[in-house]
Nucleic acid binder design. Structure first.
Lengths: 344, 344
DNA sequence: CTATGCTTTTGAAACGTTTGCAATAGCCAG
DNA sequence: CTGGCTATTGCAAACGTTTCAAAAGCATAG
């Protein structure tokens, strides 16, 4: 026999609903013997508390929300899977579940978020793909609703909780490594969307160049819309076929770097002998694309796990100081970088 | 000003809670004028119904559940991301959200599922990675709780709702294609876990071989545990270095086929000149691994979208005939297959 | 002016839990 | 044996919604 409700369980035990509820919650005021008896009966009858009722009275749903980004037809990367897995792993310790709402179209993303928040579906939400100026952050901050962002705004303003991978540092490291291999003509393939990470990474690169103070160093930047494959290929080719072709090209992220490698191969350019390529993300495909893309591991899964932990903390303690965390990406050295042409 | 509850909204309008509730639900018995007035006020005051209260009284949570599979440290594939995205896309039309529960360890997966079901968190669930004999299917069937499986049991028994990709057909097609290219010595790399798709795909291959009725055709099968990379490599190498090396090797799925390509490259075997390789899944990495893995597209995302649609139907109509759907995978011909060695 | 029938609105119960406050039982000291 | 204290337990309200049954409004017919 199964007990579906607290009432049934209480009747079976000859106790009141109150007592059973408190016993299961482990209140000290209930006699230890009673608590044990109740716990055992609950297990025996397979009692599981009703989430809706609990949420209604406590005002807490026990869920963490995430709005699924709208995606184009082809998703190459395992980003979402890793991110979700990480969130799940981080949440399981706390007993929360994840609720995923989908926006039918990109414009609806804020509306969906608002709906999730206002309907009390979630106690806190996770944001990713943070834009330079992000209306979601403004909305949630204004409502002082718990959230943690994966990524940062361009202007941090009043403060909010975030976790980010240190792209600036990685791009600085990439430059230093390539500079020491003799490269002087650099290329950067970036995107035209107003995403903050674009600035941070390029700033890191610029800073490293400035730090080196070598007037010989040049940086050519190619820009294309993120999801327009054609435009991206064209931008890359313009760089590869230009008069002063860079000897080292850095992709803002792996997908761009992989395009560089593909187009280089098509143009008969040898990587890494004639051209070094470095990416950022460490997609699965990057290991397979010959000669293996040198990149930085963003450890999405670990980041998501930590984000979940931060969010739980925010929900429970409402800290007034922003929690922030900068993860250091690790270099994954594969075959796509080497000495500049002409160097031994 | 915002109206958080029906009561607030009702007071503002000078109506009863009942009327407002019915008006928002679009009941005919409420005067059209009133309905419009209420709808407008709801929009103006940003009223969003409380999910928990609604779920409590209606007995429906409006959620579809999915238990996140426990995963090893390295996930290469974008399977999960595509699957989730597809589910989300399928659900958004119906206004449901997805709830994801995570199991801390593989053994806990059934317990987590049970918890999701018993707590009323979800109105229906999606199952994947179906094993030959699957306790989750038995549990849900026994409770007659709505669910749709991605994949099948070995023995369909009483019937349940499922969607599957027709691996048998794909493997038959793969054989036919390779046979016509002159291949006679075939290899199959498979896994040792009791997953149904392993049988279905191999059965499809066996059937195609039998249909051809050519006594020259041989099939060598190598088996390794799914998540043990070392063992897999060893099994592949045993096949590649055996006395009667196959000229065409089919991987049960892309990851296995990619391993074959990697090991072939390491052994100095040219693909496709000396060895043809075919996979199944069409991972992103498969396009990048030279010379491009010929494989079948399992269109996970589309499958998931349809599964979501089926589940919605099951939740609403409780059909007594099992809904079943077999998706035909499409061949993605790339560079890893060609004429058998010795054929022109 | 009342009875009738129809349209529109409302009061109140219910869903299953948590929790403030009150009640009861048990025990010791006076 | 009684009063008073503490250790337990229970009553009842509340959370925000849906829905049944019934009331109110209102026009038309008798």
């Amino acid at each position: 026999m199964r007990a579906k409700t607290l009432k049934e369980l209480a009747e079976t035990l000859g106790l009141s609903i109150t007592t059973v509820s408190r016993a299961l919650a482990g209140h000290e005021q209930i006699a230890l013997k009673t608590r044990q008896r109740v716990a055992e009966a609950a297990r025996a009858y397979g009692y599981v508390p009703n989430t809706a009722a609990r949420a209604l009275v406590s005002g807490r749903s026990g869920f963490v929300g995430f709005v699924l980004p709208v995606r184009g037809p082809n998703l190459v990367d395992s980003f979402l899977g890793e991110f979700i897995t990480g969130l799940g792993e981080g949440l399981v310790a706390h007993g929360s579940d994840l609720i995923l709402a989908t926006a039918a179209e990109p414009q609806a993303e804020l509306a969906v978020l608002r709906h999730v928040v206002e309907s009390g579906r979630a106690d806190g939400v996770v944001l990713n793909r943070i834009a330079e100026v992000d209306e979601r952050v403004r909305y949630l901050s204004g409502r002082s609703f718990p959230f943690v962002a994966h990524g940062r705004l361009l202007d941090d303003g009043d403060g909010y909780h975030w976790l980010d991978t240190d792209g600036a540092r990685a791009f600085g490291e990439a430059f230093d490594m390539l500079y020491e291999l003799g490269h002087r003509r650099f290329g950067l393939v970036t995107i035209s969307e107003p995403m903050t990470f674009r600035h941070l990474r390029q700033d890191g690169l610029d800073a490293a160049i400035a730090r080196r103070g070598d007037p010989e160093v040049t940086l050519e930047v190619a820009t294309a819309p993120r999801f327009d494959r054609e435009a991206r290929i064209e931008a890359v080719n313009r760089m590869l076929c230009g008069p002063e072709r860079p000897t080292a090209i850095i992709g803002l992220f792996d997908e761009l770097a992989l395009t560089v490698m593909e187009e280089a191969a098509r143009a008969g350019l040898s990587v890494p002998d004639e051209l070094s390529v470095v990416g950022f993300d460490n997609l699965a495909a990057s290991a397979y694309a010959p000669p293996g893309l040198t990149t930085f591991d963003a450890s999405i899964r670990r980041a998501a796990r930590e984000i979940a932990g931060m969010l739980v903390q925010v929900i429970e303690n409402r800290p007034d100081q922003p929690l922030t965390r900068l993860i250091r990406p690790t270099l994954v050295a594969r075959g796509s970088h080497g000495p500049a042409p002409g160097e031994s």
